[in-house]
Design a protein around this nucleic acid. Structure first.
Length: 778
RNA sequence: GCCGGCAUGGUGAAAUGGUAAACACAGCGGACUUAAAAUCCGCUGCUCAGCAAUGGGCUUGUGGGUUCGAGUCCCACUGCCGGCACCA
């Protein structure tokens, strides 16, 4: 090697070295309540990443984006004297491992372990300050045990309408409720529910999965099966109300609110040939304009009320609808269809006979599965009435000169008897009072949110801690937890809708007369509470100790437990809603001290490929983080992802920009180490202390101030550019830079590029590990 | 269709209502080098006049408004991205 050759910035040497030191010394271990070295007088900061599903493809460049952001905040808070909880784990149940098992016979546990191994290696190679002693894995028996235990908390609870809280069902037993009565109110309950069943895959599918599997040539049908459900709908109002005070992006709150979908309106009872049919409407003020009624094809009264001459066509229509999924119904959006039942309903407000139809634009799962149709003031009813030549009667006078036909906004009631002349809001109030007085209806709040279908017919998931005997379900005792899956050698679907576990005949047999439930829980189960387990991951007595809960999750006087949660928007609704629901149940039952899991939520934007499209194997545009680390080092990858733009924006990957931040690190390096120096040599002027140059001092202060403020508002890109400006300035007046100034710069750089910062700190003779140093002050 | 979000140089972007384009990429010119790479220095929104130094005009998707002053606030429109989608 020629001695006049410029020494490269040796990230490939010192990055793995520091990672090994941090690992061996457990530098990022976080002491909690109960640990000898725990200092409870310090403020806590719990910063959480959305834990990954360890797929076979390994880490995606999208993962380190959020993970670097939380790492910067965690490292900064640590330097500022906080006890920082910054953990990582694995959402390790999931379909790909099971599919692989079906193909190869390889046990999903083996595949999963190997993938986790690889993910852990990749994350450690990026130098994240995780406390690896707190790693959790949702498939671990020690974790599954508590997932099942929480399920049993739900199973043993009901929602008390008086207090708006979950309570143990034992209170109902004490009041002498029967088993049937109790089963009807449990938060975890059994129901015959129509599901998307794929006979050739031998499993049910989520709505979102249907299209994907159909494209691969599999068939999917609607079929009612016995399923476990969670009564999340009881929490609809609280899930809605308690969203407001949280520090979440307004867009995400709105998404959840729309998903929960609260509507105010009324129930109205109609008489249909001696049967009472209740409809839900948000516009009871238009009752005088109801010219026909529509039932969902699945409505229980359809068969009874259908007249003899309409029987054949009604049955044909019902049959046609039954085989269609919700999605296919949606496809028929443009064209309304329906059949007259031959029956008539009496409009309670004017005694008129109106025809009763069935149509698939009315859904069984919302409201009562029946509507009063007011074609003059509802778009869908209007379309339907036009197609089938049903009468249209105006009952609202529009404000302004809009056409009344199909006018759906508020106006003034007309042709409506005692409501005439009232504005819509007052007409609503008056008709509801009238209905309530006559016993013909009542005020009602309706939510779109449905109960949560919680069972899956799969192998690689938590089995339900439930046994069946004489047609009755009951919980197994806590002492039998965890209940693990039986060992199988053949994972192929059986075609039996009870799922693959029915093959394990020994496992199923609980006693001579009792059998185990063979369904398993969905992947959501483990991710619903992992943030709780991190606080006390090894506890075998409780899912979390009272002390750990109080310190890490409570005590701040805030609504939410975790201080900051960063992750992608893809979990805006389901994961974040499910976790909130479980958290509230555990809160109600006295196990947690905050009503919400996540105080502050920040969504990172998506990292797109260079071509502006999503990264995908199919497009061949995926960037592998390992390659970037190999060429430029972990610090460069971290810095680049933070420098690309604002955290929340989606932005395309530009490989030409990576050398840009890499050059900045090189320049920082050369502030300390001469270009042609042998390993370990510093610039002469840095080998001893000397007075700080005032101009340099001023520039450094400005930088510290800017970086400090930018970290606070998570503007990492501008924090980095401030450091670039400092290094550019310092390079020009390099011999004026003092050792002390460079040490402070290393402190500032540490959260962003911890390896090079730690290395500079050591070479410049900083005290102890930089990770444990204090944050520089202006 | 409904509900969100976004729109600034060739590119990623920056800018408490106060000199638009910091920082970086790409590009151009130069230094070093036998040469290349690397590194360092300089220029770099558009446009007009000038050999030049320099000087003038324009510019934050489009059109309006509020303001002494608008990329930023308000209204309407266009385009792109995301979510929901017959929820009565």
């Amino acid at each position: 090697m020629s001695s006049d050759r410029r020494k490269p910035y040796p990230h490939d040497e010192f990055e793995p070295r520091w990672q090994a030191i941090w690992d061996a010394e457990k530098t990022f271990r976080t002491a909690g309540p109960g640990d000898a070295d725990f200092d409870g007088s310090r403020p806590k900061f719990y910063v959480l990443d959305m834990f990954p599903y360890p797929s076979g493809a390994g880490l995606h460049v999208g993962h380190p984006e959020g993970y670097t952001a939380t790492d910067i905040l965690g490292r900064t808070k640590r330097m500022q004297g906080h006890n920082v909880l910054h953990p990582m784990g694995w959402d390790a149940f999931g379909l790909p491992a099971e599919q692989y098992a079906i193909k190869t016979g390889q046990h999903p546990r083996v595949t999963t372990e190997a993938n986790i191994e690889n993910f852990r290696r990749q994350l450690k190679a990026l130098g994240f300050a995780y406390d690896w002693d707190r790693e959790v894995n949702t498939t671990d028996p020690g974790y599954v045990r508590w997932t099942q235990w929480i399920f049993l908390q739900l199973y043993h609870s009901y929602f008390d309408e008086e207090t708006n809280k979950a309570r143990p069902v034992s209170e109902l037993e004490a009041k002498g409720w029967s088993r049937e009565q109790i089963n009807a109110v449990r938060l975890a309950f059994v129901q015959e529910a129509p599901v998307n069943w794929s006979p050739d895959l031998g499993t049910v599918l989520a709505n979102e999965e249907i299209e994907e599997w159909k494209a691969k040539g599999h068939t999917v049908e609607r079929r009612p099966l016995r399923q476990w459900m969670l009564r999340i709908t009881k929490y609809a109002q609280r899930l809605m109300d308690e969203l407001d005070p949280l520090e979440w992006p307004e867009g995400i709150k709105l998404l959840q609110k729309n998903w929960i979908g609260r509507s105010e309106g009324a129930e109205v009872d109609f008489d249909v040939q001696g049967h009472k049919v209740t409809v839900f409407t948000t516009r009871p003020d238009t009752l005088f304009g109801a010219t026909y009624m529509v039932l969902a094809p699945e409505h229980s009264l359809v068969a009874e009320i259908t007249s003899a001459d309409q029987k054949a066509s009604v049955e044909a229509y019902v049959h046609a609808c039954a085989s269609k999924s919700d999605m296919e119904r949606g496809d028929m959006n443009k064209d309304k269809s329906g059949v007259f039942t031959g029956a008539y309903a009496v409009n309670p407000v004017n005694g008129e006979n109106i025809p009763v139809w069935i149509a698939d634009y009315v859904m069984m799962g919302y409201g009562t599965g029946a509507i009063m149709a007011v074609p003059a003031h509802d778009e869908r009813d209007f379309e339907f009435a036009k197609k089938f030549a049903l009468p249209v009667v105006q009952v609202v006078q529009p404000t302004g000169d809009a056409d009344w036909q199909g006018y759906t906004d508020p106006g003034t009631a007309v042709n409506s008897g005692f409501l005439d002349g009232l504005p819509t809001a007052e007409a609503k109030a008056k008709i509801i009072s009238w209905l309530e007085a006559k016993g013909l209806g009542k005020r009602r709040i309706q939510f779109k949110l449905r109960d949560w279908l919680f069972s899956r017919q799969r192998y690689w998931g938590e089995p339900f801690p439930i046994v069946w005997e004489a047609g009755q379900h009951r919980a197994i005792p806590d002492s039998e937890l965890p209940l693990l899956q039986p060992e199988l050698e053949d994972f192929k679907p059986t075609g039996d809708p009870r799922g693959p576990l029915i093959k394990a005949t020994d496992w199923i047999r609980y006693t001579d007369t009792a059998q185990r439930e063979t369904n398993t829980m969905p992947q959501w189960a483990g991710s619903c509470w992992y943030y709780l387990r991190y606080c006390d991951p090894k506890n075998s007595e409780r899912f979390i100790s009272k002390e750990a809960e109080a310190y890490w999750l409570g005590g701040s006087g805030k609504l939410g437990a975790v201080d900051l949660y960063i992750g992608g928007t893809e979990h805006a609704v389901l994961h974040l809603l499910y976790a909130r629901f479980w958290h509230k149940v555990l809160f109600d039952l006295g196990h947690l001290s905050t009503p919400e899991p996540f105080q502050r939520l920040v969504n990172q934007g998506m990292i797109l490929a260079e071509d502006g499209r999503k990264m995908s194997k199919g497009f061949g545009n995926v960037v592998n983080p390992d390659d970037v680390v190999e060429e430029y080092g972990a610090d460069s990858l971290r810095l680049y992802e933070m420098y690309m733009g604002p955290l929340a924006d989606s932005k395309p990957w530009n490989p030409k920009d990576v050398p840009g931040v890499h050059r900045f690190l090189q320049r920082s390096w050369r502030l300390a180490v001469p270009e042609f120096a042998e390993h370990g040599t510093l610039h002469a002027h840095l080998r001893s202390d000397r007075p700080d140059d005032p101009a340099m001092e001023k520039a450094l202060h400005r930088t510290i101030h800017k970086v400090d403020g930018d970290i606070d508002r998570m503007a990492f890109n501008t924090a980095i550019s401030a450091m670039m400006i400092f290094v550019n300035d310092a390079t020009k007046g390099m011999d004026r830079l003092s050792r002390g100034q460079l040490l402070r710069f290393a402190q500032l750089l540490q959260p962003f590029a911890p390896h090079i910062a730690e290395e500079l700190w050591e070479r410049l003779g900083g005290q102890g590990l930089l990770t444990h140093a204090k944050w520089p002050r202006v």
